[in-house]
Amino acid sequence: LSRDKLDADTWDEIEETLLLADLGVDPTTELIDRLRERVTVLGVRDTEHVRELLREELKALVDPGEGLDRSLAIDHAPGRPAVVMVVGVNGTGKTTTVGKLARVLVADDKDVVLGAADTFRAAAADQLATWGDRVGVPTIRSDRDGADPASVAFDAVKAGIESEADVVLIDTAGRLQNKVGLMDELGKVKRVVEKHGPVDEILLVLDATTGQNGMQQAKVFSEVVNVTGIVLTKLDGTAKGGIVVAVQRALGVPVKLIGLGEGPDDLAPFEPDAFVDALLA
């Protein structure tokens, strides 16, 4: 009997693990089909070995062979700072990520300027300025609510150029991807900033608790502003953030950073092995 322990329960458990991690039905089904095939071909009979293969398959999905470049594009030409824009739906952790990222860059001896292009949400610029204060970098903001976010972003890059900064980090307002007007506004922020030169990095901040809607977020934001990297926040909670597996595969945009808390030091590089381990734990 022990030879044939690969019963329905084993497969159910595997499926459950993947679904509960928000991987989604299609990716889960595909992964399990592939796994079943390998199990048959290899004549695998024990659960332990299946789990090992599962880990391999998942790792291959999260970190495909050609190797996604997960480094931040923050090298810059002389006379112009690298420009990073942070975008996403409401409440995912954009402003906090800008603050934490500034901290990392400052620790790396970079001169950083923050741009408060969320002129909409109550006290958004104050929140960013507090982060700037925390990590010791200046924040460019408008002195009134409801100012044009594109011109604040433009001014921030201008200030970055004038002060010979290394990196300008632009925080934008949260917006749901089905709000056409707000998405147009985001496109405009980018275009106006590009008058100074190209935007080097556009980070989409996805909340790890997000379910299947995360794919729609990634698709629409990518169409509007050409996302170059994903930041997966709130991984310090119980959520696994499995939606990024499908997102990465569908769009080819790598997860670059993860958020692990609300403090200035709670930002880390994305590590596929650790992510897969946590997902299967």
Binding site: L176, N178, T210, A239, K240
Partner: peptide, 28 residues
């Protein structure tokens, strides 16, 4: 997503709540 259960139970047991408000329903 799926974390709704774990989180709701944690708040139910840790604080106890009497009602739920669903936010951001203007999304898709």
């Amino acid at each position: 997503g799926q974390d709704a259960v774990t989180t709701a139970m944690a708040f139910m047991e840790g604080v106890g709540f009497t009602g739920v408000v669903l936010s951001k329903l203007d999304g898709d």
